[in-house]
């Protein structure tokens, strides 16, 4: 077995810019050496609140874009949805504030070796890592139909960037404030049923991923989903971030989403059993009578 995350490094970065984007904030930071290593779908972890902080766990963010050249010797961008203590602290940082970054972490999206037809589905800030992915797919000559959705317009992310790099872009909102009223998966089903699709890539909330995987697999279309599980270490040493995944041998194992994911084959994750140790999982304790 190769060492895990063998490309990851720990670097001291600095905030370059914090930009508001609807309900989200786009953080641009210097991250020397990290940009060259990053592939679409990987994430970084950021330590919170400074050296003596009472928030001892790092927070994870999908990498939206990297730049290896330029005056800062490597920069990266990620999108922050302020939901709790750590994310609020982050969005209040200003230019030149220091940040401790570890990355790039996790398994990236697998890219096709041929110019195939791809559909990208992003829910909420889950569309952020799709920007890099779409660029890579277009570089390979792939067709890229992108769907992004959210509950409401203010929670849509990446419209302009994704429009630029996609063959087509569809917007959905549940309240109808932008694009088609409904869910991303409604739009996905429409495309799957009307055109030849080879791969579906998705990132967003777990219920969205579950139905993306279900609809794709039902039509024998290969899907890759980037999951978001609570993580304590992000580097594979603690076992907090597990979910049930079926292996090539048909055996279900509780795999670490930080090193074996966050990108998994949609048809391999036991979506309805996430949060549990399903029967038959390797090493599940049999209840004693």
């Amino acid at each position: 077995m190769a060492p895990m995350n063998s490309g990851a490094i720990q670097v001291k970065g600095e905030v370059l810019d914090v930009q508001r984007a609807g309900k989200y904030f786009v953080m641009s930071v210097t991250a020397p050496g990290l940009a060259e290593l990053t592939q679409p779908g990987q994430f970084v972890t950021v330590s919170m609140g400074g050296e003596e902080s009472s928030m001892i766990l790092r927070r994870s963010f999908a990498i939206q874009r990297v730049q290896s050249r330029g005056m800062y010797g490597g920069t990266l961008e990620f999108v922050v949805s302020p939901v709790g203590k750590g994310t609020h602290w982050l969005t209040k940082l200003r230019r030149h504030d220091p940040l401790d970054l570890v990355g790039p972490l996790g398994k990236p999206f697998s890219l096709p070796t041929k110019a195939v037809s791809c559909v990208l589905v992003g829910g909420g800030y889950g569309s952020a890592p799709l920007i890099m992915l779409a660029e890579s797919l277009r570089d390979r000559g792939c067709r890229v139909d992108t769907i992004i959705g959210a509950s409401t317009e203010m929670k849509l992310y990446g419209e302009l960037e994704l429009k630029r790099v996609s063959t087509s872009l569809t917007l959905t909102t549940e309240d109808g404030t932008a694009g088609i009223q409904g869910r991303t998966t409604d739009a996905l089903v429409t495309i799957l049923d009307s055109a030849q699709v080879d791969v579906v890539y998705a990132c967003g909330p777990m219920p969205m991923l579950a139905s993306v995987a279900e609809e794709s697999t039902a039509r024998k279309v290969f899907s890759q989903c980037s999951v978001e599980e609570s993580m304590a270490c992000g580097i594979g040493v603690c076992m907090t971030c597990v979910l049930p995944v079926i292996g090539d041998d048909g055996v279900t194992r509780m795999l670490r989403s930080c090193v074996d994911g966050p990108v998994f084959r949609g048809d391999r994750v036991r979506w309805s059993d996430v949060g549990t140790i399903p029967d038959g999982a390797l090493g599940k304790e049999v209840a004693r009578s």
Binding site: S230, C238, M239, C241, V274, G275, I277, G283, K284, E285
Partner: peptide
């Protein structure tokens, strides 16, 4: 082999 407890674990 042991699968551990259900999630959330932390």
């Amino acid at each position: 082999p042991r699968s551990g407890r259900a999630t959330p674990r932390m």
